[in-house]
Structure formats: C-alpha cells, structure tokens
C-alpha cells in the first residue's frame, strides 16, 4: 500500500515539475538560453490564482486568468529580455534572466507583502478514495488531470498540426525553417506563451496544495526545473517530461527511505549527479 501511495505522490510531484519544465525546455530548444526567470512566472501564477479565487470565488476563473496573464507576461519577457540579446553570447541572456528572477521576488514582496497570501476558503479539498485505502484531495487529482491534459494537448498539436511540425523544425534549425517560410518569431512567441501559461497553471496548483503563495515560492522550482531539463537532455521535450516524472517518484520514495540522511532537494540532486555520471548528455539525447 505504501508503495502505491508513494508512486501516486511521485506522479503528482512529477506532474507539477513537468508543467514547469516544459516552458524551460521549449525556450532552451528555441533560443539555447537557460530561462531562469521562468520560475518567477510560476510564482506570478500562484499570486494570480489566490487573488482571483479570493476576489471572485471561482477557482476555474482563477486558473484560466493565471494561465492567460502569465502567458502574456512570458511573451513580454521574450520581447524585453531575450530578443535584444539574441545576437550576444547566451551568458548575457542568462545573467539578465537571473537578474529578472531576483528582481521579481522583490517586486512580489513590495506589492503583495513578505509573508505571502492564502486562499480565504481553499477550494477542491474534498477527499476522494481513488483506490481502497488511498484517498486524495480533488486538488491533487486535478494536478494530474491538468498536467496530462495540457501536455498531451501540446504533444498532439506538435505532431498533428502544420504549426506544431514547423515549431519542431524551428527547434532543430531555425535558419532553414525560416527559409522554408516559417515565421520563427511567431513560433517563439507561441512557445513562450504556452510554456509560461503552463508554469502559471503549476503555480496556481502549488499555491492551492500548500494554501500559500509567497515571494520566494519560485526559488526551489527554478533550480529543480533546470536540473530536470539537464537530466532529460537539454532541449528535449520528451526527455524533460520523463525526467520530471522520474524525479517526482525518486523524491517521493527517497524522502521515506533515505530522508533521515538527505532532504528532498538533496535527493533530487544526488539522483541528477548519478544519472549524469552515466549519461552526461541526459536521458533522451543521443550521445
């Protein structure tokens, strides 16, 4: 029973990681830039989720608003931070991205206070028995449904639509994709919107699971998501999704069995180091 329970907890954690890591890996694939500021979008999603839910009483409206707002802010981050730096070395964009991330934590502190915000009446807290003896809150079930729905939706678009195929081609060789008539800028904006909106959705769900959103909420996901995209193979969407799930499950089991030796984040990074010692190119990139 414990084994099944840990697997479920791992899948839930992995689903959250996957929603965050998708945007990061999309941006890396398209621009070869580590988009550290992505974690600030995750936090922004959490704030929008709490504020809209508390203001309107509708969690669904909050989720949709967060995805839309964070998606648009994500696109703006491309225009403001990355686009002017595309012809420079990626290190400059990385430093700018780290700067934006740190500044955003201070902005959240200034606008929303240092102690964080909570849901006045947290929604989706009813426990549902999914297997004999194992119950989950509606919120936890929604995390998995949301991740599976959104990620498979994007996967379907990438395989079955002309724009999705063009986006995959752009990741491989933007110059030749452009010469084939693909407007690379539209693909970049679309990817920033989708990746950021998903991070926003993850932010809403984490803020709901913890019933708290605070300025530094993005700190751990920022380096954890970087670890995930390295683990999956930089730029590989499928690799990032598998790595998210693997990391979620390893953390879940690790906290029970080796939790007295290492904390959750240490377990994640120990796993990352071990995998990279065997496959330095990541899980799904051909060596």
């Amino acid at each position: 029973m414990l084994f099944v329970d840990l697997c479920i907890q791992g899948v839930i954690q992995g689903a959250i990681y996957a929603l965050i890591a998708l945007g990061l890996t999309l941006v890396y694939g398209l621009l070869r830039i580590l988009h550290v500021a992505h974690a600030a979008l995750f936090t922004l999603g959490g704030y929008v989720g709490v504020l809209v839910t508390n203001g309107s009483g509708s969690f669904l409206l909050a989720l949709m608003t967060a995805m839309l707002v964070v998606g648009v802010v994500g696109m703006s981050s491309y225009t403001i931070i990355y686009k002017p730096l595309l012809n420079r070395t990626p290190l400059i964009a990385l430093i700018a991205s780290i700067g934006i991330f740190i500044a955003s934590e201070e902005l959240f502190r200034i606008f929303f206070g240092a102690y964080g915000l909570s849901y006045v009446s947290p929604p989706l807290q009813v426990q549902i028995e999914i297997l004999p003896g194992i119950s989950l809150s509606q919120a936890r079930i929604l995390v998995v449904i949301l991740a599976v729905g959104l990620l498979s939706g994007v996967g379907w678009l990438a395989i079955n639509t002309r724009m999705g195929i063009a986006a995959r081609a752009t990741v491989v060789d933007p110059q030749i994709a452009a010469s084939s008539g693909v407007n690379v800028e539209i693909i970049r904006y679309g990817s920033f919107f989708i990746g950021s909106a998903f991070a926003g959705a993850a932010g809403v769900m984490v803020s709901l699971l913890n019933n708290l959103v605070e300025p530094t909420m993005g700190a751990v996901p920022s380096y954890k998501a970087l670890a995930i995209i390295v683990l999956g193979g930089l730029g590989s969407v499928r690799g990032a999704l598998i790595a998210s799930l693997a990391l979620g499950i390893i953390e879940s089991f690790g906290t029970i069995y080796v939790g007295h030796l290492l904390d959750r984040d240490s377990i994640a990074f120990a796993f990352l180091i071990m995998v990279l010692m065997v496959r330095p190119q990541g899980l799904l990139v051909r060596g």
Binding site: R162, R168, V172, S180
Partner: peptide, 18 residues
C-alpha cells in the same frame, strides 16, 4: 540540413509551410 528528428513527410510539410 534536413530536420533529422522529423519524418520525410514532416520535412516536406515544413517546406510547404508558406
């Protein structure tokens, strides 16, 4: 400079994107 991770059909789809 074909797109190696895309199928032949998908490469042609990209070529006809415009």
């Amino acid at each position: 400079r074909i797109f190696p991770d895309l199928t032949v059909f998908e490469n042609l789809v990209v070529g006809g994107y415009s």
